[in-house]
């Protein structure tokens, strides 16, 4: 039973994602200003994403000496495109743009493109800082991917389906976050990690003078930074159908609930970001493999037992 939205939504969805990303950037600027003790007015913050985009649009591009322009260009383009494709299975309300039977696996596959993308951008610049940044992201990916996959799978076990709209339907009575809180937290961590953002920003960190993005100028930087925010928004929005009941809720229509919940998840991420220090790779790898992975496996086991106990047979 394909419940996909009309095809026109494939064109509308990127616009929606960009709008939410815009709001997230503006909110981030406001929160950062407050944390620094120098409040930024709302009006300034609201215009800031556009101003920065403009600045990069008129800026001059840079080509590294003996750099690999093709790989770097491809890597940059892959980031936003992967984010859009991942969002294709996102139910806007109760229906997604593409209602794939293996939607969860699709989402997983698309966001893993970020690994290649960031590494290619880092490698193509022929720069020590970029190279270290690119490899940092691969190391980070090795860390977040396992807990992330177990979190996805836990939601799939709960719904006994890999179709995202089925996962939403299964939460009509009870949001999955109630029976799988560990998976939810692991998912949120991996959202920030896959977008190399906030505490997981080491691949483009200040210590590396911008890391994988250190040598990017003009539109190249714009595409990568936009892709990064789109990834964050797409992945944060995915937490809604997987754990927060999707479009289910009283009073409001389904699409409004999805929007409200997505903004709430993003607000939580943006708010937390300024309280948590940047996590270094040598710490993260150990933690994710030794603590987070077994925790999410245990969570999957608990949910499996609940499903069996409820007489899923």
């Amino acid at each position: 039973m394909n419940v996909a939205l009309p095809l026109g939504w494939a064109v509308l969805l990127p616009v929606l994602l960009l709008a939410v990303a815009w709001a997230a950037v503006a909110a981030d600027v406001v929160v950062a200003g407050r944390a620094a003790g120098r409040p930024v007015p709302w009006t300034t913050a609201a215009a800031l994403p556009g101003r920065e985009a403009l600045r990069l649009l008129v800026g001059q591009r840079r080509r590294a000496v003996a750099g690999d322009e093709l790989l770097r260009g491809v890597g940059g383009a892959v980031l936003p495109i992967a984010a859009l494709l991942a969002a294709a299975v996102l139910p806007l309300g109760l229906r997604p743009v593409a209602d794939l039977g293996v939607g969860i696996v699709w989402f997983n596959a698309m966001e893993v493109f970020a690994w290649a993308a960031v590494w290619l951008v880092g490698w193509g610049a022929n720069s020590t800082m970029s190279l270290i940044g690119g490899y940092r992201f691969v190391a980070q990916g090795l860390g977040w991917e396992l807990p992330h996959m177990f979190a996805l799978i836990t939601a799939a076990i709960g719904a006994q389906s890999l179709r995202v709209s089925d996962v939403v339907a299964a939460q009509q009575g009870l949001w999955f976050v109630v029976i799988m809180p560990v998976a939810f937290v692991a998912f949120l961590l991996s959202v920030a990690a896959m977008a190399f953002w906030g505490p997981f920003g080491a691949p483009v960190g200040r210590d590396l003078a911008g890391g994988a993005a250190a040598e990017l100028g003009g539109v190249d930087r714009l595409v990568v930074l936009t892709g990064r925010w789109l990834l964050l928004v797409a992945a944060a929005a995915m937490a809604v159908p997987l754990f927060l009941g999707g479009g289910h809720g009283p009073w409001l229509p389904a699409w409004a609930w999805v929007l409200v919940k997505t903004l709430a998840v993003l607000a939580a991420l943006v708010g937390l970001r300024h309280r948590i220090p940047t996590i270094r790779m040598e710490r993260w790898t150990e933690f994710s493999l030794v603590v987070l992975t077994p925790a999410t496996i245990a969570q999957a086991l608990v949910v499996t037992l609940v499903v069996l106990g409820e007489g899923g047979v």
């Binding site: 840079r62 000496v65 250190a214």
Partner: peptide, 9 residues
Amino acid sequence: PLTDVLPHA
């Protein structure tokens, strides 16, 4: 585009 940029460290 600015070409032949040396890496910055």
